[in-house]
C-alpha cells in the first residue's frame, strides 16, 4: 500500500532485566491519528522513542516511507523527518520562543536566515504564540511552552509527528490550548502518533486507539468500537480487537482515579 507512511514490525526493547517492548507491530497511513493508551510502564513512551531511535530497539524493524530506518546510518536525517513533542516540552532554555523554532531550520536544514525567521514566525502564529516570539521558556506557562515546542517540530515539515504525553505535565486548565492545537493539526491531515489519556481528545480525533499492556498491543480499534455499542468484529476489524474488555476496564480505572 503506497499510502503507508510508517510500518513497525515486531519491535523489541529490553532495559536490563525488564523487557519493555515485547513485539509491537502496526502500520500508519498518511493522515492517521493513532493514539496509544495503557497503564504506565507498558512501553508507550519507549515505543515512540524507538521509532526515531532516541532509544535503540533491540530487534524489529521500522520503515519510514520506503526506507528501513532501524539500521540507517543517517539517523539525524531520519529524525528530521519525524517531529517529536515531549511531556516536559524540552524547549531550549537559553533561546527565545522564536529562536527555539528557528534553530532547527538554521542549523539542521541550513535555511537562509530571513527565510527561517519568516517560517518560524508563521509556525508560531499557527499555534497562536506569535505574540510571545521574544519570550524565553522561563517566561512562558506550560501550555504556552508546549505550543512553542509543537511549532518547533512543525517547522521542520515532518512526515509524521510523535506526541509523548504532551499534556500530562500541564495543569488541567492548560491542557485545552494544547489539545486544540493538536486537533487543528489532525484535521489538517497531519499524521500523528500520540501517547495520551485525554479521552475526550482521543474520541474526537483518533483514527485508531491502541491499548498497550506489558509491552504489547493488547487491544486495538476505532474510538467508536471501544466506546461500545457496536459488537466487536461486526465491522470486519481484526480478531486482535477482541471484546475491548481490558481497554474498557482500564478506562473505567483512570476515570475513577
Amino acid at each position: 500500500m503506497e499510502d503507508v507512511i510508517l510500518r513497525v514490525r515486531d519491535l523489541h526493547k529490553r532495559f536490563d532485566s525488564e523487557e519493555v517492548l515485547r513485539g509491537v507491530t502496526f502500520e500508519v497511513r498518511k493522515g492517521d491519528v493513532k493514539v496509544f493508551i495503557g497503564p504506565s510502564g507498558t512501553g508507550k513512551s519507549t515505543l515512540l522513542r524507538c521509532l526515531n531511535r532516541l532509544v535503540e530497539p533491540d530487534s524489529g524493524q521500522v520503515w519510514l516511507g520506503g526506507d528501513e530506518i532501524t539500521h540507517s546510518s543517517d539517523i539525524d536525517g531520519v529524525r528530521r523527518r519525524m517531529g517529536m513533542v515531549f511531556q516536559n516540552f524540552c524547549l531550549f532554555d537559553h533561546l527565545t520562543a522564536l529562536r527555539n523554532v528557528e534553530i532547527g531550520l538554521l542549523k539542521v536544514l541550513k535555511m537562509p536566515k530571513h527565510q527561517a525567521r519568516e517560517l518560524a514566525l508563521s509556525e508560531l502564529a499557527r499555534v497562536g504564540m506569535e505574540r510571545f516570539a521574544d519570550k524565553y521558556p522561563a517566561e512562558l506557562s506550560g501550555g504556552q511552552a508546549q505550543r512553542v515546542s509543537i511549532a518547533r517540530s512543525l517547522a521542520m515539515n515532518p512526515e509524521v509527528m510523535l506526541f509523548d504525553e504532551p499534556t500530562s505535565a500541564l495543569d488541567p486548565e492548560l491542557t485545552g490550548e494544547v489539545l486544540d492545537v493538536m486537533k487543528l493539526l489532525a484535521s489538517g491531515g497531519m499524521t500523528m502518533l500520540v501517547v495520551s489519556h485525554e479521552m475526550e481528545f482521543v474520541y474526537s480525533v483518533a483514527s485508531e486507539v491502541l491499548f498497550m499492556e506489558r509491552g504489547v498491543i493488547a487491544e486495538r480499534g476505532t474510538p467508536r468500537l471501544i466506546r461500545g455499542g457496536t459488537a466487536p468484529g461486526s465491522d470486519g476489524s481484526s480478531d486482535a480487537a477482541g471484546s475491548f474488555e481490558r481497554t474498557r476496564a482500564f478506562l473505567r480505572h483512570i476515570n475513577n482515579g
Partner: peptide
C-alpha cells in the same frame, strides 16, 4: 532533555553540544 530535544530535531551530537 535539552540534548534529547536537539537530537530529536535532527541535530548531530556535535551540533547539540555547540548550539545547546
Amino acid at each position: 532533555d535539552q540534548v534529547t530535544a536537539a537530537r530529536a530535531l535532527g541535530m548531530s551530537g556535535m551540533q547539540a553540544i555547540v548550539w545547546v
